[in-house]
């Protein structure tokens, strides 16, 4: 059982939790994740570690409500407990030193970049974050990221804040010399189509690019192989070999297809949850 000590609503469907998880906080590095289960009979889902506080033994996670489990999690309040949490899982990414490092985040991905960008900043790197959302109100943690990164590039589809357009369009502008200038290394975290588009952009420009893959997972220890992804023609288990992989080597077609394996079932589970609402 993991106690929630703070809850913040970031957008109508995105919540930030600070939870008491001293062992995980102590062991965590930026870029790793946890697996949680919210109730008996519930699914196990991976969530990126947004931040950790070793002294206080606190871990920060950001949850975007997309299915039955995340919605159930989103209903938990301060003082309540998350049934199970295990981690830290996966390996922290190895990001080469020197040069201009650009994090590209979409959706909850900007949150996932938070402590990673801070570690890079502490290491003395020049950092930029390009964060995107449909509209201004859906942007998350832009203030916090603003404090950490040398430059923050905000993109919205409707132009309600920052650059009007996709993160990849702004990324292309940077590559062409605009704003903080051409990246030497790009970290992409977000929805699969976004990471794929970022990869296409960096490939054309010959820029190194890592992406954090989030396939379906169960155990997170390498035991089931459900999280397998193909990287440079080789099968890898994202939970233990990843979650960060060289984006240029990722078989995105397969990853996208596998991520859609249970779309119908997820809707069924969500419908079942609505009919039994309250009985969490």
């Amino acid at each position: 059982m993991v106690k929630i000590v703070e809850k913040r609503q970031l957008t109508p469907i995105t919540k930030l939790y600070r939870v008491e998880a001293p062992l995980i906080a102590k062991a965590a590095s930026a870029g790793q994740f946890v697996i949680v289960r919210v109730r008996e009979g519930g699914e196990r889902i991976p969530l990126t570690i947004t931040d950790y506080d070793r002294e206080k033994g606190l871990l920060t996670i950001v949850v975007q409500e997309v299915g039955a489990t995340t919605r159930r999690l989103g209903r938990l309040e301060e003082g309540e407990e998350i049934l199970d949490m295990v981690g830290p899982l996966g390996e922290a990414p190895e990001i080469p030193a020197g040069g201009h490092i650009v994090g590209v985040g979409g959706g909850y991905g900007s949150a996932a970049l938070l402590c990673l960008m801070r570690e890079l900043k502490d290491r003395g790197e020049k950092t930029t974050i390009i964060m995107g959302a449909r509209e201004k109100d859906l942007l998350i943690l832009s203030d916090e990221l603003g404090e950490i990164c040398d430059n923050v590039e905000i993109c919205t589809d409707d132009g309600s804040a920052g650059f009007k357009g996709f993160v990849t369009e702004r990324l292309q502008e940077l590559i062409d010399g605009a704003g903080p200038g051409r990246p030497d290394y790009v970290i992409a975290i977000g929805p699969m189509p976004m990471m794929r588009a970022v990869e296409k952009t960096t490939r054309a420009a010959g820029i190194a690019n890592t992406a954090s893959l989030d396939p379906l997972m169960i155990d997170g220890t390498g035991m089931c192989g459900g999280c397998r992804v193909t990287i440079g023609g080789e099968v890898k288990f994202a939970c233990v070999d990843g979650p960060f992989f060289d984006a240029h080597e990722v078989d995105f077609d397969e990853a996208v297809s596998r991520s859609k394996m249970y779309v119908k079932e997820e809707q069924q589970a969500a419908a079942c949850q609505r009919t039994t609402a309250g009985a969490s």
Binding site: G41, Q268, C272
Partner: peptide, 22 residues
């Protein structure tokens, strides 16, 4: 087989959608 059986045994997929793992 590990994934198949884990979904069934540990996660009780045979009770889907009451149990949420499909």
């Amino acid at each position: 087989a590990n994934e198949f059986l884990t979904r069934i045994n540990l996660m009780q997929a045979f009770e889907f959608p009451r149990a949420e793992t499909p």
